[in-house]
Simulated assay, not measured.
Amino acid sequence: MHTKQKLTATQLQIYNYIVANKRKVKDITLRELAGILSVSPASVVRTLKALGYKHYYDLQNEIKEELNRNKVVDDITYQAQYYFSQDFLTDYDQKIADFKKIASKTKDFIFFGIGSSGDLCEYGARQFVNNGRNAFAIGDPYYPVELSRDLFHGKTVIVLSVSGEGQPTIDQVKNFRQLGATIVSITNNEDNTIAHLSDLNFAYHLEFKIIGQTINLTTQVPVVYLLERLSRALNTTGQ
Rank of each mutant, 00 (worst) to 15 (best):
Q178E: 10
N131H: 15
Q167V: 14
V162F: 08
T193A: 15
G124P: 08
Y57E: 14
H55Y: 14
E190Y: 02
T193K: 12
T77V: 09
T193Q: 13
A181D: 01
L160H: 02
K71E: 06
G166Q: 08
G132F: 02
R177A: 09
A181S: 10
D119W: 15
R69N: 14
N189F: 06
L179H: 08
Y78C: 02
F109T: 01
N130M: 14
I76K: 01
A50T: 06
I183A: 04
D191S: 11
F112M: 09
F136E: 08
K155F: 00
N61D: 11
N188A: 05
L67E: 08
K71A: 10
F128M: 15
N175P: 00
T169I: 10
N130T: 06
F88D: 00
G113E: 02
I138N: 04
I138A: 09
K101N: 14
Y143W: 15
K71M: 12
S117Q: 04
D91Q: 13
S117I: 07
Y56E: 05
A125N: 05
F152E: 02
S104C: 10
L51I: 00
P168Y: 09
I138W: 10
K101C: 07
L147E: 11
A80Y: 09
D75Q: 12
I63M: 13
F84G: 00
Q81E: 11
A135S: 12
D74N: 07
A97C: 05
K107L: 13
Q79H: 15
Q79L: 14
T106R: 13
D87S: 13
I186V: 11
E190Q: 09
V145F: 07
D87K: 14
L48N: 03
V72E: 03
Y142T: 12
N130Y: 15
T156K: 03
Y123M: 11
D98W: 00
L147N: 07
E146F: 04
I102W: 07
K71N: 10
G113A: 03
I183E: 01
A135K: 12
D98V: 03
R126Q: 15
A135T: 06
E165H: 03
F112V: 07
Q167P: 01
Q172P: 03
K174Q: 14
T169C: 08
F128G: 00
I194K: 05
P168H: 11
T156S: 05
R177Q: 09
T193N: 06
G115K: 04
D191T: 00
Y78R: 14
C121K: 05
V159M: 01
A103M: 12
K95N: 01
N192V: 10
Y53H: 06
R126T: 14
G180W: 06
S117V: 02
F88W: 02
D191W: 05
V184I: 11
F128E: 04
D150V: 09
D150A: 11
I194G: 05
Y123W: 07
Y142G: 01
N68F: 02
F111E: 03
T169S: 12
N175T: 05
H55V: 01
S163F: 08
Y142L: 15
Y142I: 13
K107D: 09
D75P: 04
E122M: 15
Y83R: 03
G124E: 08
C121A: 11
T187N: 12
S161E: 05
G118I: 11
L67W: 09
I76A: 14
Y78P: 01
A50H: 10
K100N: 06
I186A: 02
E165Q: 06
N68G: 10
F99M: 13
V73P: 00
K95G: 00
S161Q: 09
T77W: 06
